[in-house]
Amino acid sequence: MAPDPRVKSVGEIETAPLFDIVVDLNPRLNIGAGPFGQRILFGAAGGSFEGPKLHGEVLPGGGDWALFRPDGAMMLDVRLTLRTHDGALIHMTYGGRWVTPPDLRARMADPEGRHQIDPARYYFRTNPLFETGTPAYAWLNDIVSVGSGYLVEGGIAYRVSQVL
């Protein structure tokens, strides 16, 4: 079969560092097994973010309404509020996937040691989007970003990059 002649070369996707973020988590709330899997709320207790163009704190009150599928993969549904060092508020949302190999799942269930597992052993990717009314950060309203997640003591962290 011949390739579709409408397909064009658009170049490779490039990224640039946006920020590193650490989100401290409250104790999880197990909402229970529903028709799509096990729903758990990982509530945000605070945190911080630091990057070349912006930095500040993660405000308490957001969280991840995670869905654990029957195959063990986790689907993320996250909403956070960021406050920059100069007082701007930014709404951050993202979905994503966290896939842990079956041989790691027991170690991941251990709250004392799971943050010591090498993040290269699992797949944890996100797609953050932003919304703000602050003119100095309005450029965030028009970008797409990607993140690589990993566990830290007391929470979760991501390296977030802007898609250029």
Rank of each mutant, 00 (worst) to 15 (best):
G46Q: 08
L89R: 11
F36C: 05
L76H: 14
V22G: 09
P101M: 00
E50Y: 05
M75I: 15
Q38M: 14
T81S: 08
H85Y: 08
T93L: 10
V78F: 05
L80G: 01
L89V: 00
Q38S: 12
H55R: 15
G46R: 06
P70Q: 07
D20E: 14
L29Y: 11
V22S: 14
A66D: 12
V23K: 03
L67D: 06
R28Y: 10
F19S: 00
I31L: 15
D24Q: 14
T93W: 05
L67E: 06
D77N: 15
L18G: 00
G62C: 04
G56W: 03
G32Q: 10
S48L: 02
T100D: 03
R83E: 15
G72D: 04
G43A: 15
T100N: 13
F49E: 01
G96Q: 11
R69T: 11
G56H: 02
G46H: 07
F68E: 14
L25V: 12
G32C: 10
G43D: 07
L80Y: 10
T84Y: 04
P60N: 03
T15I: 14
A73S: 15
T15K: 08
A16V: 13
V23F: 04
G96W: 10
D77R: 12
R28I: 10
L41H: 08
K53Y: 02
M92S: 10
V22T: 15
V58A: 02
G32R: 11
G96I: 10
G51A: 05
R83Y: 02
D71A: 08
I31T: 12
V78N: 05
P102G: 01
P60E: 03
G51V: 04
D86H: 11
E57W: 02
